[in-house]
């Protein structure tokens, strides 16, 4: 089976029962590609052979026949595939500048939410999707060098632990995947990309804000403007491939900083954080 995810095409094979069904329910409105095309990545998600077939069955992720990391329990084939594909994409797209960030868009204006440990990036991202923002990606800010536009890569966003009930409550209209308990990243439920995100996955967006989220239990909301030099430094540290991309990376990075406004968003409450981002949009006169 071949499919497109944003700027990449993937040929996927699997013999893991249940994996296909989860994949379908996550990405179903997405158009499949013809079988005879040349794809970027050839990925397989297969049952481990040998005694492992019966004893603690496992699923193995392979890219071009190479197994880049250890197998997962068979029941966690879907999260393994999602993380594995992200890793493949991060390795194979040095012709773009790649940020480790969520990206959302509303009214033609995009906000970048860079990830940091404990930042609550995915939670805030899901909260914004619940308020009608278009999900470009939960994981990658893909900056095209030629025009600085952000390219979508709409994929399942893995919500972890406490954020699972929080989102199920505050945005019940969204669609969520099955629950995976005790994965290597804790308990995980994926927010499936809304239909509109998938249908518009070839439509780029113009960056407008960079918001560095920081979640702190009980903290009062604070939206603190960041001087460009601070934002630049933080974003360089957040990029998957800034060093690799050399001069083009530097140009794209400085254009991005020049054409956006940056903030640090300290928050202890999802609804208030979402409101703060909505406020940025409402006050934006351009």
């Amino acid at each position: 089976m071949c499919f497109r995810t944003g700027p990449f095409s993937v040929r996927l094979t699997s013999d893991v029962r249940g994996f296909g069904a989860t994949w379908q329910s996550c990405y179903s409105p997405m158009e499949l590609l013809p079988d005879d095309m040349v794809c970027h990545l050839r990925i397989s998600v297969m049952r481990e052979r040998g005694v492992r077939r019966w004893l603690g069955p496992q699923a193995v992720f392979r890219l071009e026949g190479i197994q880049p990391f250890e197998p997962y329990p068979l029941s966690q084939a879907f999260p393994m595939f999602e993380w594995g594909l992200n890793w493949c994409i991060a390795m194979s797209s040095h012709y773009h500048l790649l940020l480790h960030s969520a990206v959302l868009e509303k009214d033609g204006k995009a906000v970048i939410l860079p990830a940091q440990p404990g930042s609550g990036k995915t939670t805030l991202c899901a909260g914004l999707v619940g308020r009608g923002w278009r999900l470009l990606s939960d994981e990658f800010g893909i900056v095209r060098h030629s025009d600085g536009q952000l390219l979508p890569l709409p994929r399942a966003a893995p919500l972890k632990n406490e954020s699972i009930p929080l989102l199920a409550e505050s945005a019940p209209q969204l669609s969520f995947g099955p629950r995976f308990d005790r994965t290597r990243k804790g308990d995980v439920v994926h927010l499936f990309p809304p239909r509109e995100s998938l249908e518009r996955q070839l439509e780029s967006a113009t960056p407008r804000w960079i918001v560095f989220p920081r979640f702190q239990r009980g903290a009062a909301l604070e939206l603190i403007p960041q001087p460009p030099i601070v934002a630049l430094t933080r974003l360089v540290g957040n990029s998957f491939n800034y060093r690799v991309t050399g001069v083009s990376g530097f140009r794209s990075m400085s254009r991005l900083i020049r054409s956006t406004r940056s903030f640090q968003l300290l928050n202890g409450d999802l609804a208030a954080a979402v409101d703060a981002v909505e406020q940025l949009l409402a006050e934006d006169v351009l």
């Binding site: 040349v38 970027h40 040095h94 012709y95």
Partner: peptide, 21 residues
């Protein structure tokens, strides 16, 4: 050449240029 092939090769060429640097 097919677009996917060109892009993959270009991505790796950028990576290798960096290693050579």
């Amino acid at each position: 050449l097919p677009l996917a092939a060109r892009e993959l090769m270009r991505s790796d060429a950028i990576y290798v240029a960096n290693v050579q640097r």
